[in-house]
Amino acid sequence: MLLALLLAGCDLFNPDPTKPPTNPPPVATVPDVELKWLPALPDSSLKLLEDLSGGRLAVDPDANDALTALAACTDRVVYCYRPGSLDLRTCLEAAPSCATDTPWTEPEACCPAACKTAYAAAITAGEPANRAFERVFYLEPDCFPGVRALLEAP
């Protein structure tokens, strides 16, 4: 089943309600993470993706932490992104802002306001949009609660 997400925020794109919006409201269809075809790993809650003698890739359907939350945020932006019409900044701004410091506990995908601010600052400073996106969310992910702590955990 596809989950159609309407990225709300007409006000965001039209700060002056007396004028027509300059950009259409971004709409993205973000598919559900597709796990139903994957076989179950015996004696486990995991699903199996790939299995070779040297190793395997399983999937934890219940995984839920700062990295899954980060991924939900960036996927929301990437699925929205339409070069030439919907840029990364627009899509990021359109994503719901996280309401807590634990985005993985929130009911829907969200992006922290701090990340939106950091990304906007990078674009304003002239950093290429895609490189800025990579840096803010993945290379220097300090704006996203819990990510650095996970990465630096012993």
Binding site: L38, G55, L57, A58, V59, D60, Y79, A153
Partner: peptide, 30 residues
């Protein structure tokens, strides 16, 4: 099945050891 960021963030990589396939350390998994 898209291997997008949400999908791969759920991955549990395992490697073969003497006792069978076991998950890598939490640090490496992260």
């Amino acid at each position: 099945i898209p291997l997008d960021a949400r999908f791969v963030a759920k991955l549990v990589p395992q490697v073969a050891k003497s006792q069978g396939k076991v998950s890598v350390s939490e640090r490496v998994r992260t």
